[in-house]
Amino acid sequence: MFESGSAACIASTRSGPCPRPADHAPVPLCTAHLGAVGDWIDAEAGHTDALPTPCRACGSRLGVRYPSGWLCAACEWRVGEVLDGELPPPRVDVVYYIRFDDRIKIGTTANPRQRLQRLWHDDVLAFERGDRLVERRRHTQFANLRQGTSEWFSPGPALDRHITELAAGIDDPWARHARWVADAVALRG
């Protein structure tokens, strides 16, 4: 980092060297030239931000804004393009892990947003790709923690470890689900 007043901008103008200081800049450029570089990078590489509305192709909220428009960061659908209305949305079965108070529910669905809107929960802990077969395996695997015959389980070291492994490196389980949907869209062409 440069000391205040210690460096001049290294950019050139039509009339010669830029006369403005490069105070506090990570590279010796003035604020105006740093802004120009930032605009150039946004035009070339795009600027990642929240989409104005969820992606119609995969449901992701993360997009990349270019001067020409938005792309979904998960499936690269160009916002505003017409989706093929004849194709149904892809089916992506997931096993979900949600917490409510001191209980954890292990369930499955092909539409987690709709399903989880109907369930009381405090947190979405993780998603795992899989259908009823995977769900049954998890119910058997953690049977000693099961509360009666429900899909609700008490926390325990093995279940906590499994959820931690599923969530490793994932800040938002919904981003992982959006990626799976985007992959399914891409696979069908």
Score class of each variant (00 low, 15 high):
36 A>V: 01
76 E>N: 15
61 R>L: 13
57 A>R: 14
61 R>E: 10
16 G>P: 05
34 L>I: 03
58 C>W: 14
58 C>P: 12
5 G>T: 05
59 G>T: 00
67 P>C: 02
38 G>H: 09
2 F>D: 13
64 V>S: 06
11 A>E: 08
2 F>W: 11
50 A>Q: 06
6 S>F: 06
76 E>A: 15
3 E>H: 06
35 G>R: 02
2 F>Y: 13
27 V>P: 03
25 A>I: 01
72 C>W: 06
47 H>S: 13
69 G>R: 04
56 R>T: 15
64 V>D: 00
5 G>H: 12
72 C>H: 03
33 H>K: 03
49 D>G: 11
70 W>T: 06
53 T>V: 09
24 H>C: 07
69 G>F: 02
34 L>W: 08
40 W>P: 00
40 W>Q: 03
25 A>R: 11
13 T>K: 08
14 R>W: 15
38 G>E: 15
30 C>M: 10
39 D>S: 14
33 H>F: 06
22 A>S: 09
56 R>F: 12
75 C>P: 14
60 S>K: 01
55 C>R: 04
75 C>L: 09
76 E>Q: 14
12 S>H: 04
51 L>H: 02
67 P>S: 07
33 H>A: 00
8 A>G: 08
57 A>L: 11
66 Y>N: 07
73 A>I: 05
46 G>M: 03
72 C>D: 08
46 G>W: 01
65 R>K: 08
48 T>S: 04
76 E>D: 15
14 R>G: 14
61 R>N: 13
49 D>S: 11
26 P>R: 05
73 A>V: 04
78 R>W: 13
3 E>Y: 09
39 D>P: 11
16 G>F: 01
11 A>F: 02
18 C>W: 04
24 H>Y: 13
41 I>Y: 15
75 C>T: 10
16 G>M: 11
27 V>H: 07
21 P>V: 02
25 A>S: 15
74 A>V: 02
34 L>P: 10
12 S>I: 01
68 S>P: 12
48 T>N: 09
69 G>T: 02
61 R>F: 05
71 L>E: 12
8 A>S: 15
2 F>P: 15
36 A>H: 12
29 L>M: 13
27 V>Q: 04
24 H>E: 09
51 L>A: 07
24 H>K: 02
26 P>G: 04
5 G>D: 07
5 G>R: 04
31 T>R: 12
28 P>S: 04
52 P>Y: 07
52 P>C: 00
73 A>S: 11
34 L>T: 06
3 E>Q: 08
78 R>V: 03
23 D>C: 06
17 P>G: 02
10 I>L: 08
78 R>A: 08
53 T>K: 15
78 R>K: 14
30 C>E: 02
7 A>M: 11
39 D>H: 12
76 E>V: 14
72 C>M: 08
70 W>I: 05
72 C>R: 08
68 S>Y: 07
69 G>I: 00
46 G>P: 05
